[in-house]
Nucleic acid binder design. Structure first.
Lengths: 332, 332
DNA sequence: TTGAAAGCGCTAACAA
DNA sequence: TTGTTAGCGCTTTCAA
């Protein structure tokens, strides 16, 4: 069933498409009766003009950028979105956000839709699945749509620019802090499988504390809660390095349920420094990631690519992240 | 400066647009030398075909719905987004998200962009400014794009459907709970100005406790923190009803800074039941809003309107919200 | 292997 | 006041 077009409306109304167009564009050259009749038919036919056609195809359309994130629930991304939006607005671009929710097929889907919607550039925090196919990125390149990633891909499959922090160093700093506090039994609650960040942070933890135990957790409150419940029952553990703040908060809740005090019994370090981290009863020691700045920088980078006529080389921009010591860690 | 078109490429390459099109569509009827030459020119000219035109205008395009929220930082919206996405996917629609960040001009902007991107329907949590203009909603109606609101407008300016909860009742229940606990000095940390939810919740609080003091706060962690710091210094107050959980968490942090214990010294009730509320050291008593279901229901409602040929009447769907008593409230 | 031309839905200029 | 038509960027036949 074809979409209803202006022609259908014109036919049914017994007028020309020009007249219908005039009504659509609120030109006052149409007789009231005719207008009413046409309006009626538009309504019953449920007709909706195709915007792309109205804009006379060639005319400059809305400038838009796409942003594909991994989890809408993570305040980490909220900050990135705000920074990105800010920078985009400054340059008169609008930001369309989609979330893959950690599902590769949705990521591919999101990119396709955004391409179909004719965005001018894309920021994406890609899923780094081992079996990832990169056709959607190839598509972007074929379409000449510049894009920037918020997390590096393992293989050098694409020539994309990356805006990120040094995750290995961040995790190293966090763990080093615990080591210096005298902790011997450190457990790392690691992030989701197949994430580059997970890998890098594990590496950082192990560099600072080669004997640290790595436990697979995930990226959410529940993941942190469950990991501590299922994996740390009675285990020797005086300090926790968590993949992110959400996991840390979940872990702390479970520790508390087990009657353990923080930081007296167990020290906990998070990652990201989401806003709520400093509002907790026991303010969280964590690695501050400059999220807004990352969003801004990512946009600035695509914009550069959009506006430069020459093929700019792909870059890897690493912003600074630093440990923020609050009350959830304590000398052993 | 016009956008580069296929014609430019063809001219510069000394071929016809048909040949360029063939290259673009990976047809193997083009001689390798010609293809290479064209590809080169595409690159140097930074040419990007307009998707809308490729799709031959009439052909059915990607089915998409728009969602305009008020604050990307509020987990309340994250849940709504997840529910909406879920329902949309089930019906093979994609969801494009934009955030107004409490700024009316951005809301208008977002709607315009979404319309330009040819969405099939819209969910919006509108800003209810007293000086609101409703032209963007009128535009939606003119374009025959069905939309559903997640918060009622004050005036009956539009004929939109609304999916929401009974906010007055929710706030009443929350406050009533405190009254039953014996609290006499109740303060309500109210939401942002010009929000319908703010108004409705204030009304609910006052119905349960006519003597409650209303303090303007806002919708964020910081708002809660600041309100308690600036307005409750030394004030008589044994219980706090907060506009939402974020405000409650912010308020609790400040109370703690003042050396007050929760719930021994002050009882606190939130609103929304965002996930983190149950993970706090003092799990938060709050009004559980069925956020995902609201997202789902809102999508289902637009979809109905999209697919029904008859003009469906606007409805007002109120889902159930109920008080969840945890540990932040206590008998006086 | 390439070019020419029709047609997609719509707007705007012009003619009737 | 209404109808006719060219043209927007592109794909797709069909002919050369």
């Amino acid at each position: 069933m074809r979409r209803t077009t202006i022609k259908d409306v014109a036919e049914k109304a017994g007028v020309s498409i020009g007249t219908v167009s005039a009504v659509l564009n609120r030109r006052d050259s149409v007789r009231t009766v005719t207008r009413k009749r046409i309006l009626n038919i538009i309504d019953t036919l449920n007709y909706r003009p195709i915007e792309a056609a109205r804009r006379r195809l060639g005319s400059p359309s809305e400038k838009t950028l796409g942003l594909v994130i991994k989890e809408i629930h993570n305040p980490y991304f909220a900050d990135i979105i705000v920074g990105a939006q800010e920078e985009a607005r400054k340059h008169h671009y609008r930001l369309l956000v989609m979330s893959s929710e950690q599902v590769l097929s949705r990521e591919i889907d999101a990119v396709n839709v955004l391409v179909a919607k004719d965005i001018d550039g894309l920021i994406i925090n890609p899923l780094v699945d081992s079996e990832s196919d990169f056709t959607h990125f190839a598509d972007l390149e074929a379409h000449n749509i510049p894009y920037v990633m918020l997390e590096g891909l393992q293989k050098g499959e694409t020539e994309a620019s990356v805006v990120d922090i040094d995750n290995e160093k961040g995790a190293y700093d966090a763990t080093r802090h615990l080591v210096e506090l005298g902790h011997q039994h450190i457990v790392h609650l690691a992030g989701p499988a197949y994430s580059q960040h997970t890998l890098e942070r594990c590496a950082g933890v192990l560099r600072a504390a080669p004997l640290a135990r790595i436990v697979h957790a995930g990226a959410t409150l529940k993941d942190g809660y469950n990991a501590v419940r299922d994996e740390l029952e009675g285990a020797l553990c005086t300090a926790l390095v968590c993949y992110n703040d959400l996991v840390a908060i979940g872990a702390m809740r479970q520790l508390q349920d087990q009657g353990k005090r923080i930081p007296e019994d167990v020290s906990v370090v998070g990652f990201d420094d989401i806003e709520v981290a400093s509002y907790l009863s026991v303010p969280l020691t964590t690695v501050r990631v400059p999220k807004r700045e990352m969003g801004r920088k990512a946009i600035a980078t695509v914009l550069e690519r959009i506006h430069s006529s020459v093929e700019s080389p792909s870059t890897r921009i690493l912003l600074d992240a630093e440990l923020v010591v609050r009350s959830s860690t304590k000398k052993r």
